[in-house]
Design a protein around this nucleic acid. Structure first.
Lengths: 349, 349
DNA sequence: CCCATGAATGTGACCGATAACAATCCGGGC
DNA sequence: GCCCGGATTGTTATCGGTCACATTCATGGG
């Protein structure tokens, strides 16, 4: 028995309207209301309008929980994210959110501290518990990609920035092509060869950029210098920069991301090495700061919004929903080169 | 009637176990299973173990949707975020996620493109639709703060980076104190006064930093130069830097964030102004790049993780759940000064 | 020895929606 | 005039849990 005032006509805290309230006000059954909400074809126009009026009047919003439970499909997609302090992952997440919102989906996120197998599986479990319609896994590490491919089947999943995710659909920026853009640009400027400061070797993007760099050099028949190993941080760029400054024979460096390029610029500047007169530096990512470094950084831009769109399109397709129109099916998003002041012809010998 | 093979003993796609399956296997009622799952005190140890064993055996995970629907409380909190490409909002979001995960909550996010009143309200509505337990609103703009205070009551909400959110609990870094740290540091170094390149005026953090800057100057009885207006971008820092380089009388600048400081460093360097010998520059945020700029940037560090923890603690309190232990109740998180090479004594006259 | 008491467990309603099926109304063809 | 099929609407079961209440059982006081 509810605590209901006998003479009071108003409840103090008006609880939100539910489907029955709408049905009563419109003078129809709750099922008819449900039909209107889901654009079922066979509802008379007059009825539909009456229901919509009631919806409006009560400011009714359907309960997503009940909907998901009854309909065994929810309008939420889960995202397993990693290190969203970095520009790439942060921008990717935002791109996915934007695309999802446009498609009428909400986003639940689980951030991973470490990217090992059990972590990814656990994160996906936490998301399935919430009955998400599908998941997007931002898996830039080898281990994560492996984990993704060992996921329990039955969960629609799309993987970002990975090409080793078993048979799961994968979307990523074409890192190899991006690296080649950078290296070819430097070769065209007349550099004899190009050094490379890579990202951490367990990141797929780092591997692909190494591959692209090497391919371009080999295609041009150039000497391939040893890879310098970084960890994405400005610090590692700084250290590599000091190292390179010692040698006299380096005229061009391709850094696997902009942060590292930033550290390298600092080290070179500190040692009196001029950029681009003595050494050309090219980065990767085009972070907002890139245009305002000293000198402004030539870099490779990744279109993370497009990655988000294609992710969502692929996921919706997996869910049996229509793909949003105008989104290409191709899994590799092309990067583009942004030429600024940090790259130029090599010094005259 | 289910499609069940008469002779087949295994379904092809074993659907996930539900509470009834566990109850049957453990030989108890579904209600007893529910009690075990929710640590209800009056369950015999032997029974509890039997149930737990069944849970394990079936790899049972309770359905969060059903739970939320029946119990009218969910273990998900909603976050309204804004511009998570910027370091501050991204780090805050991550801090909240981390704290939430620790408390056993999931995170649903809605990113806002613009931060106007209807946007915030709509975002909160989208989240309540999903029956989130509460929401955290990252509302660094005046308009958003205003919107937050006009939210429908009944939704437990906490606001971050705002102090004008009506009676909603608010957590933020003490921007005024941060600005004073920066300015006092420069004054102590012997600078006559300190210029300020502010953030956009409709950001609360920008306002607070202006206030702190002015307070410190006035407390020291110094001249208060006009505020230079920026927009957080390196570009605006660059432009302000060119302007300042024109004047001969500037020896110290406090930039409202590190990106702007970065742009300013570039402009000064371009004009041959040495940092810190001719001009000292201090930033705000301590982005990962700060230590590797030329020169390494003195700046004010914000503890976003702590912000996340306090947010969640405040929200849990609102929800009638126990606060996590060891998290202070105070709404203002103290920032700290990180002294690097971009600040030093003024040039001898 | 009986009954009140509290711990342990079970039963059925309910949360708010959708799904499946039944019922009703309508016009057209024979 | 009667039957049939599609359009429209209503009724009831169901999703997978929790809640309120009933029931059972052991225990201790009078």
């Amino acid at each position: 028995m509810r605590r209901q005032g006998v003479t009071m006509s108003q409840q103090p805290a008006a609880r939100a309207a539910v489907i029955k309230d709408v049905a009563r006000l419109a003078g129809v059954s709750h099922q008819t209301v449900s039909r209107v909400l889901n654009d079922h074809p066979s509802v008379r126009d007059e009825t539909r309008e009456r229901v919509l009026r009631a919806v409006q009047q009560l400011n009714y919003r359907p309960n997503a929980l009940a909907r998901g439970l009854a309909g065994r499909r929810s309008r939420v997609i889960g995202v397993v994210s990693f290190d969203t302090i970095l520009h790439g992952p942060a921008a990717t997440l935002l791109g996915i959110e934007r695309a999802a919102r446009r498609a009428g989906y909400g986003i639940s996120i689980v951030a991973l501290e470490r990217l090992d197998r059990s972590g990814v599986v656990e994160a996906v479990n936490r998301l399935t518990e919430q009955s998400v319609a599908g998941v997007v896994i931002i898996a830039p590490l080898l281990t994560a990609a492996a984990a993704a491919s060992s996921l329990p089947t039955g969960v629609p999943a799309v993987v970002v920035e990975s090409d080793m995710a078993g048979d799961l659909p994968t979307i990523s920026v074409d890192q190899v092509a991006g690296a080649r853009l950078a290296v070819d640009h430097l070769l065209e400027l007349g550099h004899e060869t190009v050094w490379h400061l890579s990202g951490p070797k367990d990141w797929l993007e780092a591997r692909d950029r190494i591959d692209g760099w090497r391919m371009s050099l080999e295609a041009a028949g150039r000497r391939v210098p040893p890879v310098l190993a970084g960890d994405w941080s400005p610090r590692s760029g700084y250290e590599a920069g000091r190292e390179l400054a010692e040698r006299g024979d380096v005229t061009a460096v391709f850094c696997a991301n902009d942060q590292q390029a930033l550290g390298m610029l600092r080290a070179l500047h500190e040692r009196g090495v001029r950029v681009p007169e003595d050494v050309s530096v090219v980065g990767f990512d085009d972070i907002p700061e890139a245009a305002y470094l000293s000198p402004p950084l030539t870099t490779v831009r990744q279109d993370f919004d497009e990655v988000g769109r294609r992710c969502l399109a692929a996921l919706l397709e997996l869910l049996g929903v229509d793909r949003p129109p105008g989104v290409p099916r191709h899994p590799r998003v092309p990067p583009s080169l942004v030429v600024r002041a940090s790259s130029g012809p090599p010094p005259a010998p």
